[in-house]
Nucleic acid binder design. Structure first.
Length: 280
DNA sequence: TGTCAGGTTTCGG
DNA sequence: CCGAAACCTGAC
């Protein structure tokens, strides 16, 4: 196991919140998976002990995944100018944004539509058990998320047996397109263009596109707006509930000091945890 | 047993 | 461009 000094990093909320559906907490250890890796992280005070599988000690991967290059304190100081965000930070400190694999994030969020976190985890578990590679870590076994080419070549009727419903055809079609997708195009430093590219895949609208941009592609000034996110904007910031998605996106872009993504994570965790009723 | 859900697509105005 | 209905399935 490798040891890393990692203070001010809320692993629990970051790994088990709505960003990723590929982590499980067993005892005091977090076990995560991607399409080709297993990851283990155990928290111990300001340190973590970690390992990667099957290639051991893959520090380059972990550093990128945990998004450790960001100047976290600096970002915090900017977004905490906002009073609501400041409260949310105090309620749930040290929340982070992960930098996950592009294919995995895209395919996972295609499955997320019309489901809550629990439902998404269920779908992904079932899909992975049918199509993913099995790995063993510490006597626990896990199924990796299926490889893109496996999903692309799967039979639609077989995919449908994983209870992902109408999302099956989107998953297969998008997997096919991803195999020929030029990820370099997504490196464009232009969220508008990137969103258009992503929406060219099936089963991806504005919200899912924004999730991919924030959780996989590193866009820092985008706030994925699910219905709860929109309720936050309407109830805490007074936005008109008839405002369109993209108008709301423009608003957050201009109002969180260039860091709408992290601000959004804090706000959503806040309302999710303390269960504020924000009924419309 | 019936309703509803952290969204996208399709269709009609 | 905008609002509304359909969509698979598990959970309450």
């Amino acid at each position: 196991m490798n040891r890393l000094y990692l203070p001010n990093y809320n692993l629990n909320a970051t790994l088990l919140g709505g960003q990723s559906f590929s982590w499980k907490l067993i005892g005091n250890t977090y076990y995560g998976t991607t399409q080709d890796k297993g990851i283990k992280i155990r928290e111990d005070g300001d340190y973590i002990f970690w390992q990667t599988y099957p290639q051991k000690d893959n520090w380059e991967f972990l550093r990128r995944y945990l998004n450790l290059e960001v100047d976290y304190e600096n970002v915090l100081s900017k977004i905490s100018e906002d009073e609501n965000v400041e409260h949310a930070i105090q309620a749930n400190p040290n929340l982070r944004i992960l930098r996950q694999d592009f294919h995995l994030t895209t395919l996972s969020f295609i499955l997320s539509s019309f489901k809550n976190i629990k439902g998404i985890r269920y779908s992904i578990d079932k899909l992975s058990q049918k199509y993913g590679e099995k790995i063993v870590v510490d006597d626990h076994f896990f199924y990796l998320f299926p490889k893109t080419e496996v999903l692309a070549t799967a039979k639609l009727e077989d995919l449908a047996e994983t209870s992902i419903g109408y999302r099956a055809k989107y998953l297969k079609s998008s997997a096919e397109k991803l195999l020929n997708f030029d990820e370099i195009l997504l490196k464009l430093d232009d969220d508008v263009q990137t969103r258009v590219q992503l929406k060219g895949l099936d089963g991806i609208g504005n919200k899912v596109a924004d999730c991919i941009m924030v959780f996989a592609l590193g866009f820092e000034n985008i706030m994925p707006l699910d219905v709860w996110g929109q309720r936050v904007l309407i109830n805490m910031y007074g936005l008109d509930k008839k405002m369109s998605y993209l108008k709301m996106q423009e608003w957050v872009k201009a109002n969180f000091q260039g860091h709408a993504a992290l601000a959004g994570q804090f706000l959503f965790e806040y309302v999710r945890k303390i269960n504020i009723q924000l009924m419309l």
